[in-house]
């Protein structure tokens, strides 16, 4: 498939936003049961939610560049019964709404205590909102992943690993950003986020390598024989019926050379996993916000490469019909 940058930015940016929000939710729920010190509502949770929301908005804006007719985008919410894309279109604004409400509650100190346990642990209204947001976050990860995983003849995508990878990559990059942000606004939480970032990034490494292995062993179900219905081992296309390009030749091929294609795989494997983890480790030891931000930026750039490779690797069966001019 042709890697469209609108979709690459959409999926990576909302992934960061979702992960960042999950990090805030995780931090606040640990604090609610007094496993972590409670943070300043305005500075940490309020500003953190704004950052998460900005990433979600960035992703939403990127998605409009993918549409031919963005003015009709509202119609995309109508087919939620059958279309994962439609479900994503519904869940993304719902998540943005919860993140917005959560951010406003913290930023303007509008939080209310709903319940106080004997131990002194408090259930805040914002945590209830965040729980809904957390559900929406995971629903959005599932929707985004399923958009690709539900296309059964794109065999590289049609696997639960697609959904798992989207979830883990989004969460890892969001936690990475949360680590840098915590080092700046809530230093007591930096180590907590840093360790979780490491765990999630390593989990993502395991599942992404699993999907790379799976994809390298795939056997294409469709062949030129089934595409044409001709039973002969040697069939060669002599003409695709036109000499200029068409949507079929532009949208379904990555048009990169084999060297570029293969090197992007190694580039993302380095930029997403070992390099940011190294920077994260250095940044955690020095409590260096810039180093932690660098870890996030490196991983984000790596994720763009990862998404590029994700698209480029998928081999659409229609390509069988477009082998030669």
């Amino acid at each position: 498939m042709h890697p469209a940058f609108s979709v690459i930015f959409l999926t990576t940016l909302i992934g960061v936003g979702q992960g960042m929000f999950l990090a805030l939710f995780t931090g606040q729920s640990y604090s609610a049961v007094e496993l972590l010190p409670m943070q300043d509502s305005h500075n940490f949770y309020g500003n953190g939610a704004i950052i998460a929301l900005l990433f979600l908005i960035g992703g939403l804006i990127a998605s409009f560049f993918h549409l031919g007719r963005p003015e009709r985008a509202w119609r995309a919410a109508s087919q939620w019964r059958t279309s994962w894309l439609s479900r994503e279109v519904i869940v993304l604004p719902i998540l943005m709404f919860f993140v917005f409400v959560y951010g406003v509650m913290h930023y303007f100190d509008l939080d209310a205590t709903l319940f106080t346990a004997d131990t002194g642990a408090q259930l805040e209204l914002s945590l209830v909102i965040a729980t809904f947001g957390m559900i929406a976050t995971f629903a959005l990860f599932i929707c985004t992943g399923m958009i690709y995983a539900c296309l059964k003849f794109l065999q590289e995508w049609a696997s639960p690993l697609t959904v798992i990878n989207y979830t883990l990559f989004g969460t890892a990059s969001g936690f990475m950003l949360a680590t840098a942000f915590a080092n700046h606004s809530a230093p007591e939480l930096m180590r907590f986020y840093g360790i979780w970032t490491t765990i999630i990034t390593l989990a993502a490494l395991a599942t992404r390598v699993a999907s790379l292995i799976r994809n390298s062993r795939l056997k294409a179900k469709s062949t030129l024989q089934t595409a044409l219905g001709v039973r002969h081992n040697r069939i060669q296309q002599k003409s695709m019926g036109f000499m200029g390009g068409s949507v079929n030749t532009r949208d379904f091929f990555h048009h990169a050379s084999l060297v570029v294609f293969k090197s992007i795989k190694w580039i993302f494997l380095v930029l997403v996993f070992p390099l940011p983890l190294l920077l994260l480790w250095i940044g955690m030891n020095d409590s260096n916000t810039n180093m932690l931000l660098a870890a996030f930026v490196v991983q984000y750039v790596g994720l763009i490469a990862e998404r590029w490779f994700f698209f480029a690797q998928a081999n659409h069966p229609q390509n069988l019909y477009y082998q030669t001019v």
């Binding site: 040697r234 069939i235 296309q237 002599k238 019926g241």
Partner: peptide
């Protein structure tokens, strides 16, 4: 579209 293929050797 009409495409053309060569079957066989």
């Amino acid at each position: 579209r009409v495409q053309t293929y060569e079957v066989g050797e």
